[in-house]
């Protein structure tokens, strides 16, 4: 069912230093949102902060918010943002990746309002109900290709929404971001690139179809707002690949094979967002009570 710890170690465990070389300063490994809707020309760090601001709004986080839960908190960009920028007094996040958890613990060791644990969302038991829930590109790990083929996708996404609902207070919101699957390429060369991304970079993960998420959110959440951000992700990938290329020498020296693997992966992603094989959706979901 979905990604195992072994799977996510392949995806996020190369080395924290490696990812730090080509992600933004906060280490968001998710789509940024650019204010310049024509040319996507914003400073990349600012665009990543803008994404966190938008999702905070979608989760209705404000001065009244006392607690936030981040499902799949990665290297801790969002939990740190919630504590330091939104001044939320109680923020908790969890990730299944030990490397990511190590980074979360390190960056928040002096931020008493933040805690992070290393665990599978299926085993998380909330010690209290949260004022807001967020999940940024973690739902791609909920369903495996085998689950999708067996017709279990909606059932598993619904269970994910059920859990999020059970961890939150009545009347609260959920800020969700997900890469979504659209058209499927048929050409052999494109499929070979996708095979590489599927088996080498993100084993056992599959991006959801947007309609599956909407169907699955019922009966726990209603969709209040939804945005498509395909070109934002294209530009995000462009920045990541550009930064990877600028560090080519160091990456090749320290992590043999990683430059070639990630260059191919990011180039495939550029094609995927250009051709609408993949898109990016952000949702503001309100609990149904």
């Amino acid at each position: 069912m979905g990604s195992s710890q072994q799977d996510v170690e392949v995806s996020y465990g190369v080395s924290n230093e490696f990812f730090q070389l080509w992600l933004d300063e906060r280490m968001n490994y998710t789509c940024a949102v650019f204010k310049d809707r024509e040319n996507y020309s914003d400073n990349f760090e600012a665009a990543q902060d803008n994404k966190l601001r938008i999702l905070s709004e979608f989760a209705h986080i404000g001065p009244h918010t006392e607690s936030v839960l981040d499902i799949g908190c990665g290297w801790g960009a969002n939990i740190e943002y919630q504590a330091l920028v939104n001044k939320v007094p109680d923020v908790h996040g969890f990730t299944l990746s030990p490397e990511q958890h190590k980074k979360c613990a390190d960056r928040t060791k002096n931020v008493p309002s933040v805690t992070a644990t290393c665990q599978n969302y299926l085993h998380y038991e909330a010690p209290k109900k949260f004022d807001a829930v967020m999940s940024i590109c973690m739902v791609e790990h909920v369903v495996s290709p085998e689950d999708a083929r067996a017709g279990r996708a909606v059932e598993l996404y619904r269970d994910y929404f059920r859990r999020a609902h059970s961890w939150s207070k009545p009347g609260t919101y959920f800020g969700l971001q997900a890469i979504t699957r659209c058209n499927v390429p048929r050409k052999k060369e494109d499929l070979d690139d996708l095979r590489h991304a599927t088996y080498v970079i993100f084993p056992n993960a599959v991006t959801p179809r947007v309609e599956d998420l909407i169907v699955a959110a019922n009966p726990y959440y209603e969709v209040i707002e939804m945005h498509s951000r395909r070109f934002d992700y294209h530009k995000t990938i462009w920045h990541w690949r550009d930064r990877l290329h600028k560090n080519e020498g160091l990456v090749k020296e320290k992590w043999p094979g990683a430059f070639e693997d990630y260059d191919r992966y990011l180039t495939t992603c550029l094609k995927a967002f250009e051709n609408n094989w993949q898109s990016l959706h952000q949702f503001s979901l309100k609990r149904l009570d």
Binding site: P145, A148, R149, A153, C182, V206
Partner: peptide
Amino acid sequence: DEKLARLQ
């Protein structure tokens, strides 16, 4: 495309 994932 939406039918592809369920072909077993």
